[in-house]
Write a protein that binds this DNA or RNA. Structure first.
Length: 572
RNA sequence: CGGGCUGUGGCGCAGUUUGGUAGCGCGCUUCGUUCGGGACGAAGAGGUCCGGGGUUCAAGUCCCCGCAGCCCGACCA
């Protein structure tokens, strides 16, 4: 592509509404342009990258035995009503009506559509399993689109759905897809980690997220440097000892409980300082609603309650931490001064850390008062022991006991074992070899194709611009011609044209800067646009019969003989 | 949906406090000089100052009502 003819405009300044590197650089480099909040146009350069990522995904899906198809983006709401997700997805869906006022939505995902289609085609165990995928635009009216492509309202997703006769067969395909995902992210040159996760709106049991490691990521995940344990913070647990909690009350030799005046100190930090103790010696009592009753969750003062873990602990009842409205409705609750022995508490759940043999400083159930020397068993009770605390860096790994690490990441993929949720709702059933009918067992598998583009830029850039891995770069070579105005100018143009033609003929993809602009602009744009190899051809080089080569990633320079340069460059 | 900030030429911004008829840098056009890391000079083009009301002799500026964008939070593949 000759830059003199390319639909490409680079920006010297960062657009004011871009905060993170990938967003800034993709805008400055003319890869994308914003059309509306969270909605982007893919300019020719960006389109090439997007297509290459999609092609890698396509190749790995095909290799894993999945078959590509395309499902409608405009989907009848009736399907979503049948699965119940019309309500649960709610405002996240873009909705529209046709002329007959029939409700449609723009597909935020496609479990309903594919299940409905498959249900109409397959009816025998002989037809199963089948694994289908599409690479198609998805629409989610996010509460808060941000970070450019990372949380867009329109985004390109690869979504695959597999259908099975039983859970064992699902697990085999799940593993195949899991392996294929690893290959996709490796080929995309991402540092990533598969982590155990909680199911969101999609449902199902087992699932893993693939996190591209990045500071700007929106998700925390926990991983063990010593073994293969990794989980997102919701699902993560620390190693803890439950064995003695139910049988023994810790023998704590402590003074009697003592009430202390702590005026206007509802926060842990302030009270700890006032009492002269560490935050970890405070007992934090978090009020939550459990099916309409008051529950208390007890954790050390330097810890946070993992709400998801709390939910598991009280299941099948539902737990929800108190918010401002709940406290407003319960004026008898001394917010910030609640103690573990609060009389109105129907259920007290505590983390094993609370079972340690020591006295606690905690709330006195009275505004502006705390107590010290509160002792488990003597001064308060615990109904349920459960791992409640959010894992923090350094906590012991639940598998091997080593210190865990916490990192931030961008969720670039997610695989689920769904079970029969959608098959039940949409009547996707098959007949087994005994003539009995069963719902199909499903898996689903997503990759954020457009999000990967942003994740790659986050990982591969420097102060001057993007640094594309060879497999994803829009062009293999960025050829910079510097003819100048001397007698040699015509010769340089001629040589550069010839090199461009021969490289292209040899199968290379070349971005050729043949513009009539200054060398500084050409070099700055080459750095910004980030092709892996820059070729510079000037008067001196032509005179010596060489073209200069510079690797964008390392800055390493060398020279290639112009004679046969295309063959040399393409082969190695 | 709460809190904060911002909307002025393609991009980045000043001007708003104290009302007087719109400016700077980059970019763009033309000419000349330059030509290996974002050159220089000269001359130009380009603006419903987010929108709608209102106050006023006069509104980018003050008031009211909207809309949009960004950040923090809640939420979320």
């Amino acid at each position: 592509m000759r830059m003199s003819r390319a639909f490409l405009r680079t920006l010297r300044d960062d657009p004011a509404d871009a905060e993170i590197s990938s967003h800034q650089l993709l805008l400055r480099g003319g890869y994308i342009r914003r059309l509306a909040s969270g909605v982007y146009a893919w300019m020719p350069l960006g389109q090439r990258v997007l297509a290459k990522v999609a092609q890698i995904v396509r190749e790995e899906m095909d290799a894993a035995g999945a078959q590509e198809m395309t499902l409608p983006i405009a989907q009848p709401l009736e399907l979503w009503e049948r699965s119940g997700r019309d309500e649960t997805y709610g405002p996240l869906m873009f909705r529209l009506e046709d002329r007959k006022e029939v409700g449609f939505c723009l597909s935020p995902t496609a479990e309903e559509a594919i299940t409905s289609i498959v249900a109409g085609e397959l009816s025998s165990y002989r037809d199963l399993p089948v694994n289908l995928y599409q690479i198609n635009w998805k629409y989610r009216d996010e509460l808060r689109p941000r970070f450019g492509l990372l949380r867009a309202r329109e985004f390109l997703m690869k979504d695959a759905y597999s259908f099975h006769a039983d859970a064992d067969d699902l697990r085999r395909t799940y593993q195949d897809m899991y392996d294929a995902y690893q290959r996709v992210f490796e080929r995309c040159a991402l540092r990533f980690r598969p982590v155990e996760a909680q199911a969101g709106e999609i449902g199902g049991d087992v699932n893993h997220e693939f996190m591209a490691i990045a500071e700007v990521g929106e998700d925390d995940f926990v991983w063990c440097p010593s073994c293969d344990y990794a989980a997102n913070v919701e699902a993560a647990r620390r190693e803890s000892d439950h064995s003695r909690l139910h049988t023994e009350v810790p023998a704590v030799d402590a003074a009697a409980r003592e009430r202390v005046h702590t005026p206007d100190l509802p926060g842990i930090q302030g009270v700890a300082e006032h009492l002269g103790v560490e935050a970890s010696e405070m007992l934090k009592c978090i009020a939550f609603d459990v099916d309409g009753e008051l529950g208390l969750a007890l954790v050390p003062g330097d810890r946070e309650v993992n709400e998801h873990a709390l939910g598991l602990a009280v299941a099948p009842r539902a737990a929800r931490l108190y918010d401002d409205a709940d406290f407003a409705a319960r004026p008898d609750l001394p917010r910030g001064y609640i103690g573990p022995d609060f009389e109105g508490a129907a259920l007290v759940v505590a983390d094993p850390l609370v079972g340690e043999e020591r006295p606690w400083a905690t709330g006195a159930n009275e505004t502006d008062h705390h107590v010290r020397h509160a002792v488990l068993g003597r001064d308060f009770r615990v109904d349920v022991w459960a791992d409640l605390v959010s894992v923090v860096s350094g906590d012991p790994c639940p598998r091997c006991g080593s210190g865990l690490s916490v990192d931030r990441g961008i969720e670039v993929g997610h695989v689920f074992q769904l079970g029969t949720k959608y098959a039940d709702a949409l009547d996707a059933v098959y007949t087994d070899d005994d003539g009995n009918r069963h719902p199909m067992v499903m898996g689903c598998y997503g990759i954020g194709v457009s999000r990967i583009v942003a994740a790659i830029v986050e990982e591969h850039h420097d102060d001057d611009g993007m640094i594309w891995p060879a497999a994803l770069a829009p062009f293999d070579f960025h050829l910079v011609a510097l003819p100048g105005r001397g007698d040699a100018a015509a010769g340089v143009v001629e040589a550069a044209d010839a090199l461009y033609e021969s490289l292209t003929a040899a199968g290379a993809q070349v971005l050729y800067d043949d513009r009539d602009v200054s060398p500084g602009i050409k070099f700055a744009d080459a750095d910004l646009l980030g092709m892996p190899v820059r070729l510079t051809l000037g008067a001196k080089g032509v005179a010596r019969g060489i073209v200069e080569r510079r690797a964008r990633a390392t800055g390493d320079d060398d020279e290639i003989a112009l004679d046969g340069a295309a063959a040399t460059l393409v082969s190695g």
